[in-house]
Design a protein around this nucleic acid. Structure first.
Length: 330
DNA sequence: TCTGCCGGGAA
DNA sequence: TTCCCGGCAGA
């Protein structure tokens, strides 16, 4: 009768989705999209591996400098830096032995094991822990034997300590000229990759079966679907940080003893869990809620389809009432 | 555009 | 409680 404004008509989840998804979808989707693009692009043609040594040197140096400067400002502006820091390392040189994009995660995510500083990881983890009350699955490294491989073109030196590999990179590759010394301190992070050897120690693995909280964490506003939407503590825009510390989150099915280049690993993780997963997982958590709050449209034919409008009297009551069909349950 | 069905109102 | 339907959202 009256034109009713049915703002509250839809389930609160619907509203929440519409309000949350833009944030999650746009941010995460775009970010991850950009990241993916960057990864793909860089992976496709890697400057370091294809260019002349001088160009490589300069590009890598530039990228590293940018990264270094960015990493210095992480504390103030968190997530954009995470985004940004995700991309440049890919530029600066994952090398050929792994997917181009992976090096970004490598250099960022290696905080799991390597002493290289990577502040952005910690905060999302804390945030997600706060939001989801889940234990941080970071312990897997305990059972991992690590080595570090130099990614410098045509080097490939493997050392067993971070210090060693850093020193190697710094002294051998970066600090040929003294002027590099200043920036190379953080730069060497990008020129080595960690290779892990998982032993068969299944019960030691403390990592949860499949940590999904990687992405929900930044999705704090979105994930509030299960809790009243509360503004993020600090950032007004509540930006999701697609980069999560998920390097060690993927659960490699270690059958036997595998050496796994971490950059590869992280690339997959990055696509599957950390970056892309942000939107994916948000979507998924949202979907799960959606299932509970609103039925997924079923594949089964409903009374309407089966009997047709003209035989509406044969419909089940729910269908007649435009409710969820009770006869053809999915 | 069609369809399922949520949310709400009327009887 | 039953019945109906506006309107949203997904396919």
């Amino acid at each position: 009768m009256l034109p009713k404004t049915r703002l509250g008509k839809r389930s609160p989840f619907g509203a929440l989705v519409s309000s949350a998804c833009p944030a999650a979808g746009t941010h995460a989707g775009q970010e991850t999209g950009e990241t993916s693009i960057a990864m793909a692009t860089v992976g496709g043609e890697h400057p370091i591996s294809r260019r002349s040594p001088e160009e490589v040197d300069m590009d890598a140096l530039m990228a590293a400098m940018v990264l270094s400067s960015l990493s210095c400002t992480k504390s103030t502006n968190q997530w954009p830096n995470q985004i940004i820091t995700t991309a440049p390392p890919m530029d600066c040189g994952g090398g050929d032995l792994s997917d181009g994009g992976s090096s970004g995660y490598l250099s960022i995510g290696h905080s799991n094991g390597s002493p290289a500083p990577s502040p952005p990881i910690a905060d999302p983890a804390g945030l997600e822990q706060v939001l989801f009350d889940e234990p941080a699955p970071r312990k897997r490294r305990n059972s991992v034997k690590s080595a570090y491989r130099c990614l410098w073109p045509s080097c490939g030196k493997v050392l067993t300590s971070v210090v060693g590999i850093k020193r190697h990179i710094r002294t051998t590759h970066l600090c040929r000229g003294g002027e590099h010394e200043r920036c190379s301190r953080s730069e060497e992070d990008f020129y080595y990759t960690e290779i892990n050897q998982w032993d068969q120690q299944p019960q030691q693995q403390q990592s949860p079966p499949l940590p999904l909280h990687c992405s929900p964490a930044p999705a704090s506003p979105t994930s509030s679907s299960s809790s009243p939407p509360s503004p993020p503590p600090s950032s007004p825009q509540s930006p999701p940080s697609p980069v999560c510390s998920a390097l060690s989150r993927s659960a490699p099915s270690a059958s036997g003893s595998i050496w796994q280049v971490k950059s590869e690993h992280s690339y997959q993780v990055g696509r599957g869990l950390s970056s892309t997963s942000y939107s994916d997982e948000v979507h998924r958590s949202l979907t799960d809620l959606s299932v509970s709050l609103r039925r997924i449209r079923g594949e089964a034919k409903k009374c309407r389809k089966v009997y047709g409008i003209e035989h509406r009297d044969q419909w089940c009551t729910s269908c007649r009432w435009k409710k969820a069909c009770q006869r053809f349950l999915d």
